[in-house]
Design a protein around this nucleic acid. Structure first.
Lengths: 140, 140
DNA sequence: TTTCATATTTGAACCCTTTACAAATTAATT
DNA sequence: AATTAATTTGTAAAGGGTTCAAATATGAAA
């Protein structure tokens, strides 16, 4: 926890309890949580927690480059700790989202048609191996 | 218009005025419109038009494979006529969305980590050439 | 044509995610 | 201790999208 405290301070962010718990959560939980998932979990420890705080904090973390937003074709935004660029796979059956560690040259493209690329997003949708297995047993 | 009529009939879709106008619009308008953009335009011709009809129709067209949904990291869904897979570039300054016709091998991947890929999405965000030009004149 | 059944459209209510904002709380400064 | 600034909270509200029942249009059968 001390480490997280320093981590925030180094980036000019006052390390409040809320921010520390949120940071801890997204660091440990690599399941690309939504605001609601974060809220459900942390409000167990901080019962007075407000969802607005999560929104504020996530926006702050994004600005500071600590986390990145994830859009995989659902209605809501997901978050993950900022790591090396990678792709994602969303299963349309179970909703799970997996990291895809392909070494894609596409992440190295910095300019296209004269447009300057700041961020590149790659995601797949389909059926994950688990759901394929289950489906195969039940009805195919 | 006769062509569009037949186009829908061939796919088992009753060609109502609403559907014809919507299809015509997304066929002619390649700017990846949102539901609201479609609504604003077509309600000029059909004043009684309901937004629900647009939602219904777009979902129907997606099911039938006529159009595809587009998610480029905003809050809302965009649509485009179904063409060969391609990437998109969204300018964070002006909001414009451009097709990117790179021949990416990524669109050919059908399986990753045992997961079966049904759809692949690739989009870039950044500043488009137009906005870079303008910015350069004004403050850089 | 008239009738009946079916499909489509419409509009209002509603759900959900996200933002706005002001009051309350907490932390930092003097 | 007092004042100021930063953060959190909660309510309201905005915006996209869905649900659902009533109204309308369409198509088939008589």
């Amino acid at each position: 926890m001390k480490k997280l405290y320093e981590f925030l301070e180094e980036r000019g962010i006052s390390p409040t309890i809320q921010r520390l718990k949120i940071l801890k959560y997204i660091e440990e939980n690599l399941k690309h949580p939504t605001v609601d998932m974060i809220y459900q979990e942390i409000s167990k420890e901080i019962p007075t927690l407000s969802k607005t705080t999560i929104y504020n904090t996530m926006n702050l973390f994004v600005e500071k480059g600590i986390v990145s937003e994830l859009c995989v074709g659902e209605g809501e935004v997901r978050y993950e700790i900022n790591l090396a660029p990678h792709a994602h796979f969303r299963c349309t059956e179970c909703g799970n989202i997996f990291d895809v560690e392909l070494d894609l040259k596409i992440f190295k493209i910095k300019k296209v048609d004269g447009n300057q690329i700041m961020h590149t997003s790659v995601y797949f949708t389909g059926k994950c191996s688990e759901c394929l297995k289950k489906k195969g047993m039940i009805n195919e």
